[in-house]
Structure formats: structure tokens, C-alpha cells
Amino acid sequence: MAKKLAQIDKAVCVACGSCVKVCPRKAISIWQGLYAIVDENRCIGCGICAKECPASIISIERLEVGA
């Protein structure tokens, strides 16, 4: 079984907060003003954050989860 999850390139993220504002599950937050992080337990991989990111550094990955 696979789960979709947002992945953020922390090396490039400038913590603009665009993704935080649009996440319907409130799964993204800004860590110490440096970059965005994803709460894997809340993220449903909808992709809204990836579409909103002005730097296009958010991707939606498929992760395999145990049976």
C-alpha cells in the first residue's frame, strides 16, 4: 500500500509560508523561521502546497507503507 506525502527541499526553502497558508490539513509549519516541514501524520499528499509554492520546491512522493 502506498501513501502520498509532500516533500520539501529544505536546502532551497526560504520559509515564505505560502504552503502553510493553503494546506487543508494544517500539515505544514515553518521550523524556526528557516524552512517548512511536513507533519507526516497529517499530510494526505493532495498537492495543493506544491502548486502554491513560488519556488516549485515541493514534490509529492509515493511512500510504501507496511501491510
Rank of each mutant, 00 (worst) to 15 (best):
P24K: 08
I48M: 08
S56M: 05
G66R: 15
W31E: 07
K10S: 10
R42C: 07
K3G: 05
A27G: 05
I28N: 00
C53D: 00
D39T: 12
A67F: 15
Y35V: 02
I37M: 10
L63N: 06
G47F: 01
C13T: 06
A27M: 06
Y35P: 04
R25S: 09
S29H: 13
C13P: 02
C23D: 03
S56C: 03
I58M: 01
A55M: 14
C13F: 05
I58G: 03
W31T: 06
I60R: 00
A11H: 13
K4H: 07
E64L: 13
G66A: 11
G33D: 09
C19P: 07
I8G: 07
Q7M: 15
G66K: 14
C13H: 05
I57D: 03
A2C: 09
G17L: 06
G33Q: 11
C46R: 04
Q32W: 05
C19H: 02
A2L: 14
Q7H: 13
L34K: 15
W31L: 11
I48R: 10
L63I: 12
D9S: 03
I60Q: 02
V65L: 14
K10V: 12
A36L: 06
I37Y: 12
A27L: 08
C23W: 07
E61M: 12
V12F: 13
C16N: 08
E61F: 12
K21H: 03
W31M: 07
G66F: 14
I37W: 09
A50R: 03
A27Q: 10
V65M: 07
D9L: 08
S18A: 12
G33P: 08
C13M: 09
A27E: 03
R62D: 06
V65E: 11
A15Y: 14
S18P: 04
V22M: 06
S59V: 11
L5H: 14
G33C: 00
C53Q: 00
L5G: 00
D9K: 10
E64D: 11
C16I: 06
I8H: 00
E52H: 02
M1K: 01
E64N: 05
I30K: 00
S56E: 11
C49H: 04
E61G: 01
E61I: 09
E40R: 12
I8R: 11
Y35Q: 08
E52W: 04
P54F: 05
M1F: 15
K3W: 15
R62S: 08
E64G: 02
I8C: 06
C53S: 00
L5C: 07
A11K: 12
E61L: 13
I48N: 06
A6T: 09
I8S: 01
I30L: 00
A6Q: 11
C19N: 03
S56R: 13
I8N: 07
C19E: 01
Q32L: 14
I37H: 03
K4P: 02
A27F: 02
R42D: 12
I44Q: 05
C23F: 04
A15L: 15
G45D: 03
